[in-house]
């Protein structure tokens, strides 16, 4: 899988294999924290981490709804890009991403990684350990987290200003 700039306005992620495509199309579900208090908490951080309860309460009331809307919008942008610009067969596909959508992709991919890691309790130790060769949900979660991270890295590199 690789990402490259087609022109000033468009990136293309290509060489998406069957399994990679299957994971990518599950991004919205992976990013959804519902049903896991840990995932919901990770996507709704407080302002002071509990040091100033009054400020945290105001934050929860006034800012968190805006952030939730931002996260939902990012996931929706990715979903629309997948639906609207998925190219090629399932075994060697590509997707075109407007450069203006790259930030939304990075946020949606991060949302999915963080929600999965929180839902499946992937600690720092678990993240650095080589995943065991089995199909436990936690192992699969680690696979998704690594895959979405790899895609983020490709987008960061492809989206960099060439003049910098």
């Amino acid at each position: 899988m690789r990402a490259r700039r087609l022109d000033e306005d468009t990136l293309e992620i290509s060489g998406i294999g069957f399994l990679e495509g299957a994971i990518l199309w599950r991004l919205a579900a992976a990013a959804d924290p519902h049903g896991s208090a840990a995932a919901e908490e990770r996507l709704a951080s407080s302002l002071t981490g509990g040091a100033e309860p009054g400020l945290d309460e105001e934050w929860k009331e006034h800012v968190l709804p805006e952030l939730k809307a931002l996260f939902a919008s990012a996931v929706e942008i990715v979903r629309m890009d997948l639906v609207g610009s998925w190219l090629g067969p399932g075994s060697d596909a590509a997707v075109r991403v407007p450069v203006a959508h790259v930030e939304a992709w990075l946020i949606a991919l991060n949302q999915a990684r963080l929600a999965l890691a929180a839902r499946h309790k992937l600690t720092e130790k678990a993240m650095t350990r080589r995943p065991p060769d089995n199909l436990r949900p936690r192992t699969l979660a680690r696979l998704f987290v690594d895959f979405f991270g790899g895609l983020q890295q490709l987008l960061l590199e492809a989206g960099e200003d060439p003049a910098r």
């Binding site: 951080s45 040091a51 400020l55 800012v63 946020i107």
Partner: peptide, 14 residues
Amino acid sequence: IQQLHGWLLLATIE
């Protein structure tokens, strides 16, 4: 902090 949380970094003020 709002911007950092928008990018999903863990951040607080103190």
